[in-house]
Amino acid sequence: MIVLNELTQAIGDLDEEKVMEMLAEFVYSKPTENEAQEVVNACQQGMGIVGDLFEKGEYFVGDLIFAGQLLTEAINTLKPVIGGKSASKVGTIVLGTVHGDLHDIGKNIFRSMAEAAGFVVHDLGTDQPVSNFVEKVKEVNPDIVGMSGVLTLAIESMKDTIDGLKKAGLRDGVRIIIGGNPVTKEACEYVGADAFTSNAAAGVKICQGWVR
């Protein structure tokens, strides 16, 4: 019998061996889809712990990367028991690194955490022109648009992208979150986003709040 809060803590501790052992046993015990969903939730709560420890300055970006990997491995292990109808998708996100910027580490951490949280993520990739964001938003009608950037020029690109969405009449239909090194409250206001973060786990929490 899996102890959910033990699993949550093991994820929070980034104890890969323990997590994978617990999940292997759980899958072997032929659980119901509901039980499996509870386990997925426990994993996500574990990611919440990771995000908190990052915020506190006990975990660092390298640990977030490992956490993202651990979460992906955990979800993959659970796939056979999560079921055909699969966890109800909680929302859709269009994600990308803005034009002029080729960095993707933070974006990728966010993506794996968001997917584990039940979001469908359309990842455009890096160095994405405004038009790509606009077209994708038109195509999939997401709840959220996430923009990432590490270089200082990314702020201007984020503003361009949001202006592009406004011009296309799409701004009001989505919530926008920005992430990366240079993002601050001032940057968030300047570009016209709804939220900002430099912590992927916190970013996912914000998105979950929006789609509830």
């Binding site: 034009h99 002029g100 910027d101 080729l102 960095h103 993707d104 580490i105 890096t126 160095d127 022109p129 020029l153």
Partner: peptide, 10 residues
């Protein structure tokens, strides 16, 4: 990159 600046992907 699109603007001419040389970048260093991971």
């Amino acid at each position: 990159g699109g603007d001419g600046f040389m970048q260093h992907p991971n």
